[in-house]
């Protein structure tokens, strides 16, 4: 059962940046790409459970603030050591200036 929830306002995230969004004990990272598209992933790095929202976004890559593990935040793909487990991604849509993510089901 898909559940769409409002994560933030469009203006809350700068271009080529990321913010943290917590919801019912879960934590997510919401990204805005240089092309002005929005994406969402799990909020914690798969290496050592560090909040990715403190990391650096460059093009389509989020880099973990602690150990420089890298993921493509659009696909969740891990991009080399020390991370080897992909990041969970979530569908995103923008409606009336709000960024919404769907967290009901599990998506690759």
């Amino acid at each position: 059962m898909p559940e769409w929830i409002v994560a933030c306002a469009v203006d809350d995230v700068d271009e080529e940046d990321v913010i943290r969004f917590d919801h019912h004990g879960r934590t997510f990272a919401i990204y805005r790409s240089p092309e002005d598209e929005f994406f969402a992933t799990d909020g914690l790095c798969t290496h050592e459970k560090v909040h990715l929202a403190d990391g650096l976004v460059m093009d389509d890559i989020i880099e973990c603030p602690k150990h420089n593990g890298r993921f493509n935040y659009k696909t969740g793909a891990a991009r080399g050591a020390p991370v080897c487990v992909n990041l969970q991604t979530y569908p995103v849509k923008v409606e009336a200036g709000k960024v919404m993510i769907e967290i009901g089901g599990v998506h690759g």
């Binding site: 560090v50 909040h51 403190d54 990391g55 650096l56 880099e63 603030p65 602690k66 420089n68």
Partner: peptide
């Protein structure tokens, strides 16, 4: 926490 991480990386 990681307050300075991003800026140190930059």
């Amino acid at each position: 926490g990681n307050a300075v991480a991003r800026d140190i990386r930059l």
